[in-house]
Every structure is written in C-alpha cells, then in structure tokens.
Design a protein around this nucleic acid. Structure first.
Ligand code: SF4
Ligand code: SF4
Lengths: 146, 146
DNA sequence: CATATTTAAGACTATTTTATCTTTATATAT
DNA sequence: ATATATAAAGATAAAATAGTCTTAAATATG
C-alpha cells in the first residue's frame, strides 16, 4: 500500500532532514549533502526540491556555500502543503475504487470506509507541521534513512 | 492518493458485480458481460480475474454459457484476501516514507501516523466480506460504474 | 463433426513513474 | 579574470504499470 510517490517520500525526508538539523549555524544546506546523507539520487532529489522552491516552501541560493533553506518558519509549513505540491492539488480527490464524479450523495460501495481513511490522512497532514516533526525527530532520535 | 492499483479496482468491482447479482438464476457470469457492464477493458479484466481463479476465489468454465463464479460462499471471502492476491502478500508491509527494515521499535518520524492508518485499512479489509458488500449494494442501490 | 462461445495464455504496445546524464546559469573565492 | 561550487533545466534511459491484440484450449449445441 503506497500512498505517496517516491518523489514525495524524498521531498518529505529532505525537509525533515533540514528541520531536524536547524540551529547548527548553516543558512543553506546543499542538495549534495542531503542526497548523500539520505542516500537519495542527487538529480532526482534536485528536481523534487525545485518543485518545492517554486511552491514557496524553499528558497535556494547558487554558488559556493549555496543550497536550500526553508522560506517560511517551520511552524507554518504543514505536511499537507508539501504533499499537495508534490502529488498535485487533487491528491485527496481520488477514490478507493477509482470511480469518478461522486460524493457523499452518490456513493460507491466502499465510500463509507474510504471517507474515514482519507479523512484521517488529510487531518494528519493538515495538523502536522515541519516544526513538530523536527522536534519529534530530535527528541526521540528518529531515523530518516533505511 | 491511490491505495489500490487499477487491477485491484477492476477485480473488486467485478466481484462486487457478481455478488450483487446473485440469485438471478445464472450460475456463471461471463467476463464479456462484466467488462461491458462495468466498462472495463475485456482483456485486462480477464487477466485480473485469472489471478483470482488461481487464487481460489473464483471458478471458471469455458464454452457457451460459461464464465466465472465464486468458488466459496460470499460470506467467507473477505476483501483482504482479494487484495492480497492482486497486490501481493506484502501489501501491508509498505511504509509511508518508503523506508525499510523498521517496526514499532525502530520507527521513522511518521510511523505513529502510518500505523494507525494502515491498521484501519487492514481492519476494514479483514472484517468486510463480499456478502456484506453485496447486501449493502442492493439495499442502498450503490453504483459500480463512474 | 463443425461451429460458435467462452476462458487461458502470452506477446506486444503505450503510458507513467523513476532514475541518470548533460548542459547551463549564477554565485563565491582567489 | 579565472576557477570552483552550486542550483536549474532539460534530454535520455530504465522500470513499473496499464492496456491491447493474437492465438490456443475447452465446452456446448446442432
Ligand atoms: S463513492 Fe466515495 S469512495 Fe467511491 S469512488 Fe466516490 S468518493 Fe471514492
Ligand atoms: S517506521 Fe513505520 S512508517 Fe516509517 S517506514 Fe518504518 S514501518 Fe513505515
């Protein structure tokens, strides 16, 4: 059961890497460092992070000592915003049986199940900020690599 | 957010079509009828249903008036069995961030969220039988097509 | 037996996702 | 100025998923 694409996985892990390493003094973190630390293909990661830069999550700076950094406070960036950029705005419009053009009034046989599941995922993503995750990672010493 | 492949979607919809139309007298329902009624590619559906036949969910019969039928009572077939055949036995072993080799003791930053979500999906699939769905479909007149 | 109907099997094509490689643009440092 | 480090952009390749087409095997019927 895969709910996120690899691109999203990489993007989220990279952001979590950044927020969990804040305060070490660096302003920009290079994509080379992230791809190496997290063992993610450099070029693929680059493309993914470009989307987040275009999506106003990150700012980037070229040249020596350049890299990427959060554009806004980590407290203000909810996971849902990241996911919507990487997966598309319609991420939560998809359906369990792949049907279309339906709502609570015109449900398919699994709508009641799907509604709850999708609701929980959406709620989780809406209420979790990068700051919360960063704190959690450091406090519990959680891993970002296999 | 897509949790099931197209093959699973088609397979489930076909099974639901069968159980919601039981008792009309036919023993076997042809793949041609199903693919037409549900607007699913005939050949693709055929391949999918072959997996379910091999997986002891269906029996098939060739020749005129042939088709497929449930091998066991609809009460005994839980959705999880179907999904595991079509998606693989490891369907519930995948992870939110795509990491591997982890469990409750070695969690990644989103493990607590993922655990709950995956648990609910698994529980839903484990406790829902084809018979329950068939009854539901007929009682509430639910649709299987877009 | 001959023919029509239906599933089984597998080759083939198309699309999407994932990954790699190459080139370009921009900034820094010497 | 020149060399170096870095992100941006885009071309190309590989792999996974989805879909189509062809042929074979089994069965029923006349
Ligand atoms: S009825 Fe609900 S679960 Fe089914 S396809 Fe529509 S929105 Fe999705
Ligand atoms: S820690 Fe949990 S959610 Fe994270 S990758 Fe492992 S099993 Fe999946």
């Amino acid at each position: 059961m895969k709910v996120l694409s690899n691109a999203s996985n990489y993007g989220l892990r990279a952001l979590l890497y950044i927020v969990s390493r804040r305060g070490r003094g660096e302003t920009y973190i290079s994509l080379g460092e992230i791809s190496e630390e997290l063992d993610i293909s450099f070029h693929f990661l680059t493309k993914t992070m470009q989307l987040l830069t275009q999506g106003e999550i990150l700012v980037s700076y070229r040249g020596p000592n350049g890299g990427i950094a959060l554009k806004r406070p980590a407290e203000e960036i909810m996971l849902i915003e990241v996911v919507k950029i990487l997966e598309g705005e319609d991420f939560f419009d998809t359906c369990m049986l792949g049907l279309e053009g339906c709502d609570d009034c015109n449900p398919c046989p699994v709508h009641h199940l799907w509604r709850e599941i999708k609701g929980k995922v959406k709620h989780d993503f809406e209420t979790t900020s990068l700051a919360m995750m960063g704190k959690r990672i450091n406090e519990k010493n959680l891993r970002l690599i296999p």
